[in-house]
């Protein structure tokens, strides 16, 4: 070790001794990630074994890619995969811009108390469980007793009403609509926080230069929160294969299963209900690998567009 290297090491050790408290605070996080995120990955080996839930995983027979082949031979899995992509993309296309738009709209409110009320009320749906939301939707859309039926009766229409919750044509719209409604608020808060961080002087300068409201929104607000938008987009794309298990599990039914069954509901059905753990793990692993590839790909693209963006 030469003198330069030695002094570098000394500097590192000195730095570590000086900020040991901060390094020590890393320990719980590292322990957490290791224990709860990396150690359970051992279970992924089930996807390559013939494991039926009994006995030890280590003792189960290795079967290579048999479970993956079996998955792709199954119509139900292929359909779940297709539905997963369609529903996820629809949620991304309609769900991702919604909180940005809402945040811009709320930011435009000048009265402070009104802004607070709107801000708080848009968050509330996020705290309501999907089971309760299904109850609400049933109370609204039921063709026999729902609110829509009551309104129709009041205006003199007593004919047949479509059951939106049991119609293949409309059900995906119900999934995406309710997802946007429930999740929009929490995203809005993130963007509002980012907007608050933009220097007010930029707006003042733009006003002096004669910029209109749209121009300020486009050139200052949206540009100012671009980094946040890209980061959230990458994270969102990483979760693109999570099409919303709890939502679909709570609100789907046998009439719409062909357009609503996703990989997670399929995994639940064959894994926990039927006890076919190897097949379910293979499906879950397949989903995760796609998610990982998409994150890396999006990160690469965003780095190409803007070298300062991206998450790694």
């Amino acid at each position: 070790m030469n003198t330069t290297e030695r002094s570098k090491w000394k500097k590192q050790i000195g730095y570590f001794r000086r900020y040991w408290m901060l390094y020590a605070m890393l320990i719980p996080g590292i322990v957490y990630i290791t224990v709860f995120k990396y150690v359970p990955m051992y279970g992924v080996s089930i996807a390559f074994k013939d494991y039926n839930g009994f006995g030890k995983i280590a003792e189960a027979e290795w079967v290579g890619l048999k479970n993956f082949r079996r998955l792709f031979e199954t119509n139900a899995f292929r359909r779940a995969f297709y539905n997963n992509i369609i529903i996820s993309l629809a949620k991304l296309v309609f769900g991702f811009p919604a909180p940005i738009i809402l945040a811009l709209m709320i930011d435009g409110i000048r009265t402070k108390w009104a802004k607070r009320i709107v801000q708080t009320s848009v968050i509330l749906p996020d705290f309501v469980s999907w089971v309760v939301i299904y109850g609400l939707m049933y109370a609204i859309f039921s063709p026999n007793t729902g609110v829509i039926r009551q309104v129709a009766s009041v205006i003199g229409y007593n004919g047949k009403l479509p059951n939106l919750l049991a119609d293949k044509e409309t059900f995906r719209a119900v999934i995406v609509g309710s997802h946007v409604w429930k999740g929009m608020g929490i995203g809005t808060v993130t963007y509002l926080a980012a907007i608050t961080g933009i220097d007010q002087q930029l707006y003042d300068a733009a006003t002096i230069d004669g910029a209109g409201r749209w121009q300020k929104t486009w050139h200052i607000t949206l540009t100012g929160i671009r980094g946040v938008i890209i980061t959230l987009l990458i994270i969102r794309i990483g979760h693109i294969m999570n099409a919303g298990f709890s939502q679909i599990f709570a609100i789907s039914n046998s009439a719409v299963v062909s357009v609503a069954d996703i990989i997670d509901t399929y995994v639940y059905r064959i894994g926990l209900t039927q006890g076919r753990f190897s097949l379910a793990t293979a499906a879950g692993l397949f989903k995760s690998v796609i998610g990982l590839v998409l994150v890396l790909f999006t990160n690469w693209i965003s780095k190409k567009v803007d070298p300062d963006s991206g998450i790694m």
Binding site: Y138, S142, N144
Partner: peptide
Amino acid sequence: VEPDFVTIP
């Protein structure tokens, strides 16, 4: 038949 049969709990 009561028409909510698909979705009714």
